[in-house]
Every structure is written in C-alpha cells, then in structure tokens.
Design a protein around this nucleic acid. Structure first.
Ligand SMILES: [Zn+2]
Ligand SMILES: [Zn+2]
Ligand SMILES: [Zn+2]
Ligand SMILES: [Zn+2]
Lengths: 146, 146
DNA sequence: CTCTTATTGACACATAGTCCCATTTCCACA
DNA sequence: TGTGGAAATGGGACTATGTGTCAATAAGAG
C-alpha cells in the first residue's frame, strides 16, 4: 500500500468538488510527500515552501483535511501533526519511544456508544481517539538490547 | 455531587506535594469556580483576574491539570477548555447543540486495546477520547418543539 | 522574625492559526 | 484565442495559547 494516494486522484477529487487545481495546492501536496517521515507539521510545509504564503498553506491544509486527504494527529504533548489519511474512519497508534504513527481501523467504539446512550441518553455523532504506547518494532529493539 | 471539590481539599493536595498555597493560586481556583458554566477557557480566567500575571495563570492551570484538579476538554472545533476534573480516568461527552459537557467513566477501551495488541503488537499505555453528539436534554427539547 | 527558596509578574518570544483585502490566476465560455 | 467573473493567493495585522528569562517578592519552616 502506497504511503499516499496518487496526485491524479487528489486532483480528481478537487475537480469533483469544483475547486481549482492551483500551483500552491500542488506544492503543498508535493511538500507533504517530500518529507522522509509520514507525518509533518504545518511548520514543515512552511519551511519547504518559502514562496507560498502562510495563509495559503493553512487554508490548503485545512481543505485537504476536510477532503480527507490528510488527517490530523494529536500527539501526547498536545502538538498537532498532519499525515496522509488512509481515508475513512480510523485512529492512530502513536509510539512514545520512536514517534512512529500507525493507523488503526476496525474501531469498535460502537458498543461503547450504545452502552452510553442507554446510561446517559447521550447520542454520539462522532468521536476522537488517539492511542499512545509502544510499537512492535520498539518492543523487539528493547528485547534485543537487554 | 458538587460541581467542584472543596477548596480545603485542593489546598491539602498542594501542601501534600510541598507546594505553596499562594494568593494567585487561590484566585485561579476562585475564578474557575465563579463562572456560570462548568467549563472555562484560559482566557476566561485571564479576564476575571486582570491583577494576576498571564504567565502565572498558565503555570497554575498547568499545575492544576497535572494535579487532576482540572481536566482539559478538546472541543470539536479544536478549541481547548478546562473543567473541574471528576478525578481518575474518564472522558467527555460534548453536546454539539448546547455545548454542555458530561463526564463519562467506565471507559471500556481495554478490550479494544487487547485486540490491538494481538493484531499489531502495539502496547497501549494510554489514550485520549472525546465523544461528540447530542445530550439527553437537547433531545427532549427537540422532541417538544416538533 | 528571619532565612531560604518557591513563586510571581513583566516582557519578549514562539506556535498555530484567522481575517482582511487588493491583486492575481484559473478556466468556462464566447 | 481572448476575456470576464469567480476563486484563490499573498502580505500583513491580529488572535489565542502558550513558554523562557530573570529580578523582585512572599510563603512558611524554624
Ligand atoms: Zn516505536
Ligand atoms: Zn473510532
Ligand atoms: Zn445539549
Ligand atoms: Zn478511557
């Protein structure tokens, strides 16, 4: 599975929404794909694109998040990262020790929500979940160095 | 159940940690208790306490969050609120329509986590969950106005 | 009452954005 | 191929939410 969708697919989705395919938008996509990491901060994009206005960068990030091209990841320290979205409902597993982020689908909070509705009369429309811990790679690394 | 713990209890916890009970700290607690809402922003506190330095307000908020006197609530729009913590592991149900926040204990994400570990080898240390939807009161209000 | 040390306040700086508006650019259509 | 109108941009000011520094102050133990 590719780290991120083809540019053509994103362009298609922009056009489908009647939005323009502009140079700044393409630059942001390129800058997001350029990093070694699969995650990036707004600042990363800014510094990779000094010729693009800051307001435009934030507008574009917001747009691409709305379009589910990128998703936001809330780190344990409260900082925010962006990441190519795997699209559709998913959450993130964030490794404390190496900082890697994995996606995690098959979120089964529904039973939790149903239980909730029964108990409190609150109907959930959505939720935000981030999981912090230690990834498999860091586990084996730790096991080896023991 | 009281909206917030007694001042004496908080003072006790400060002393237990060897921290000083100072006028600014007491003011922040008073300002947090003063609002009509059970939630408040850093800015609310600032505006209620013009005589207290901004840095002190943020330092105090941070301290009280660490002490689990307050908790942070992440709204759907990304804004942050503070709230008297019910203490211990819990999450929030945030009503889209009236903005009310309810606490929700008995979070059973553990099975989810175990499943996760089996599938991905990721061991969860903690998690952050906020639930957005519609509260019971807003449901009945909607039913009446139909 | 006095000493030590935690804490404060002022201010500069940082990050993550938003808002405004004149200018530019895309692109549908003639 | 040209062009008008809408969409998007860039620059700059502004906001919210913090953090870091440091000299001055004050809590509270003895
Ligand atoms: Zn790791
Ligand atoms: Zn989910
Ligand atoms: Zn409500
Ligand atoms: Zn939980």
């Amino acid at each position: 599975m590719a780290k991120h969708p083809s540019l053509a697919a994103v362009v298609q989705r922009l056009e489908d929404r009647g939005l323009r395919v502009t140079a700044p938008r393409l630059s942001v996509l390129a800058a997001a794909a350029a990093g070694a990491e699969d995650q990036f901060s707004a600042e990363d994009i800014e510094s990779r694109l000094p010729q693009v206005g800051r307001a435009t960068i934030f507008r574009t990030l917001k747009l691409l998040v709305e379009m589910d091209v990128f998703c936001r990841v809330l780190l344990d320290d409260g900082n925010l990262r962006y990441r190519w979205s795997r699209r559709g409902h998913h959450h993130h597993l964030i490794c404390d020790s190496c900082g890697a982020i994995e996606d995690f689908t098959g979120c089964d909070v529904t039973t939790l929500m149903q239980d909730l509705a029964r108990r409190t009369g609150f109907t959930a429309r959505g939720h935000w979940l981030e999981v912090y811990g230690r990834c498999a790679a860091c586990h084996s690394r730790a096991a080896v160095s023991q």
